[in-house]
């Protein structure tokens, strides 16, 4: 890597690291330290192929997804960071629900969480999710379905019917 390439890499990291770090944070279930590790590992892979990578951001994102899923495969464990407790000042039920949802998301497997992040945070269609994770569309669909079911199991208050901001669903 020459000086010009290094400068381009630094500019890329400076511009895109907020968005990439948000993604890493979600993939690791809200564990800041694990998220930093994940992003650094993905960036290290990217910089090793810097000359040949045409779309660095897409490359880093894919590296993070695959790395996270492969770490999970290898270790069969997930990093669970407990989000802050319920004692939020406004006491709004919607806020409480989202706290419950965070706890539940943090307890999913890395693969389940990755599928939900791709579908609901990145808003990607199932086919693209399958391409990124290197699996079939059917697997994406069934994993997403199981993940949502698992969330309801982990947080019974998320089971429908539920109420958000006083808005009842029957």
């Amino acid at each position: 890597m020459d000086a010009a390439e290094e400068r381009r890499f630094r500019e890329f990291v400076s511009a895109r690291s907020p968005a990439l770090m948000r993604l890493a944070y979600l993939l690791t279930g809200g564990d800041q330290h694990a998220a930093e590790d994940l992003l650094q590992t993905a960036l290290a892979r990217t910089v090793a192929r810097w000359r040949s990578v045409e779309a660095p951001e897409a490359y880093v994102r894919q590296a993070m997804y695959r790395q996270q899923v492969s770490w999970w495969r290898r270790r069969r464990e997930t990093v669970v960071a407990e989000p802050p407790g319920r004692a939020l000042a406004d006491g709004a039920h919607g806020v409480d629900l989202r706290i419950d949802m965070r706890r539940a998301l943090a307890k999913l497997t890395a693969r389940q969480r990755a599928v939900l992040v791709l579908r609901y945070y990145e808003d990607l269609p199932e086919a693209e999710v399958a391409g990124i994770l290197g699996c079939s569309v059917g697997t994406v669909r069934s994993t997403a379905h199981r993940s949502l079911a698992r969330l309801r199991e982990l947080a019974p208050e998320l089971r429908e019917p539920y109420t958000i901001f006083g808005e009842a669903k029957a």
Binding site: F9, S17, R22, P83, R98, L116
Partner: peptide, 25 residues
């Protein structure tokens, strides 16, 4: 609001808590 929407909102709010490490590059 559906559970899909709740997941979507939660992920967005939660991601705001990520801190970008200094001198990452």
């Amino acid at each position: 609001m559906t559970i899909d929407e709740l997941v979507r909102r939660t992920l967005r709010d939660w991601s705001d808590e990520a801190r970008v490490p200094s001198d990452l590059a």
